[in-house]
Amino acid sequence: MPGYGRLLVTGAAGFVGRHLLVLLRSRFPEAELIAACRPEDGALPSPDGADRVVPFDLLEPAACAAMIAETQPDGLIHLAAQASVATSFNDPLASWRANLMGTVALAEAVLHHARHCRFVLASSAEIYGMSFRDTAPLDEGALLRPANPYAASKAACDLAVGEMALRGLDAVRLRAFNHTGAGQTPSFVVASFARQIARIEAGQQAPVMQVGALDRWRDFLDVRDVCAAYGAALAAGTIPGAVYNIASGTPRRIGDILDALIARSGVTPAVELEPDRLRPTDVERVAGNAGRAAHDLGWTPTVPWDETLDVVLSDWRGRVYHS
């Protein structure tokens, strides 16, 4: 396992970032954890938070070089992104500026100021897009056919980082499939369901669930398993530019997830389709082949899906109670 004196996480104040800091603290106890966050995100919690926080904004790429030159990370996990598909349809240019230009500026700063640093990119299975209509599960050789502006911007930065590996960037690209867990925002489907159920239980919402397309199949992971994959990518010896699917290999029907969450509650809500939750372009079934990650990184998911659902619903019950 490589030794790390300083580990930098961009987007550390976000949903995945807060879980990742816990994982990194455990797996690399001697490393200094540096959280790169937008100033408006505020300080991170301790003791499981960062040792220090530095300002970072994907929309200000000129500041990346100074930040990397000052922090001199040995390992960097780049989580920061404009990650909402719905937002990307409303403002495609914002996704391109943050996800492509911000990532390229950050990676170029690493090349010029911290060439020794391992750069782990949080890519996305969304970049496969319409290829899921042809076959599933997909491995890393599948064509990139993104079906929304968010996915297109992530595909572009995935390719850009792959090219930069040819110029000396010690890069690893992880294409994570859907993941959920405690702390996720309700713009994502499992969290949306759990929040609505918790609000109905608390009498804060009428007993009606607003949903998007239920007859879709998605490959879900617990966020803790995804964070374990990021840790494995730091620890493993991989060739520069290596790419790995991070997937369960088990597609789950969205409607069945809704039914499983309702069954955990004391409510029997009506279910209404909300057209605004539907995507202009979509695929019915998504599944990934993560065999390469198992072989090269020693990574496989371990958190049971029922435990994930229990955690998400419990988290939202607590958040609603304290709201």
Rank of each mutant, 00 (worst) to 15 (best):
V22F: 09
V22T: 15
V22R: 15
V22P: 05
L23E: 14
L23V: 15
L24I: 09
L24A: 10
R25A: 15
S26R: 12
F28Y: 13
E30N: 12
A31S: 12
E32N: 11
I34S: 11
A35M: 13
A35N: 08
A35W: 08
A35D: 07
A35F: 08
A36G: 13
A36W: 07
A36M: 04
R38S: 05
P39M: 06
E40F: 08
E40T: 11
D41G: 01
G42T: 10
A43Q: 10
A43S: 07
A43H: 08
P45M: 03
P45G: 07
P47L: 03
D48R: 15
G49W: 12
G49P: 07
G49V: 07
G49T: 04
A50I: 00
A50Q: 00
D51H: 14
D51P: 06
R52L: 03
R52Q: 12
V53N: 15
V54F: 01
V54D: 01
P55F: 02
P55T: 05
F56N: 03
D57I: 02
L58P: 10
L59P: 04
L59N: 05
L59S: 05
E60C: 09
P61L: 03
P61T: 03
P61D: 08
P61W: 00
A62Y: 05
A62V: 05
A62W: 05
A62T: 07
A63D: 15
A63I: 01
C64F: 05
A65V: 02
A66E: 15
I68R: 10
I68E: 06
I68K: 04
A69P: 08
E70H: 03
E70S: 06
E70L: 00
T71H: 05
Q72E: 14
Q72I: 01
P73C: 10
G75F: 02
G75D: 07
G75R: 15
L76K: 09
I77Y: 04
I77F: 10
H78V: 01
L79I: 14
L79F: 11
A80N: 14
Q82Y: 11
A83V: 01
A83E: 05
S84I: 02
A86Q: 07
T87S: 04
S88C: 14
S88G: 13
D91Y: 07
D91Q: 09
D91G: 04
P92N: 15
L93R: 11
A94K: 00
A94R: 03
W96F: 09
R97N: 04
A98H: 04
N99F: 11
N99Q: 11
L100N: 10
M101Q: 13
G102E: 00
T103R: 09
A105E: 09
A105T: 01
L106D: 13
L106R: 15
L106G: 14
L106N: 13
E108S: 02
A109N: 04
A109Q: 12
A109V: 02
V110Q: 15
V110P: 12
L111W: 08
H112W: 02
H113F: 10
R115D: 05
R115F: 07
C117E: 11
R118V: 10
R118G: 14
R118A: 06
V120Y: 04
V120A: 12
V120G: 13
A122S: 12
A125T: 11
A125Y: 06
E126C: 04
I127K: 05
I127L: 13
Y128K: 03
Y128V: 03
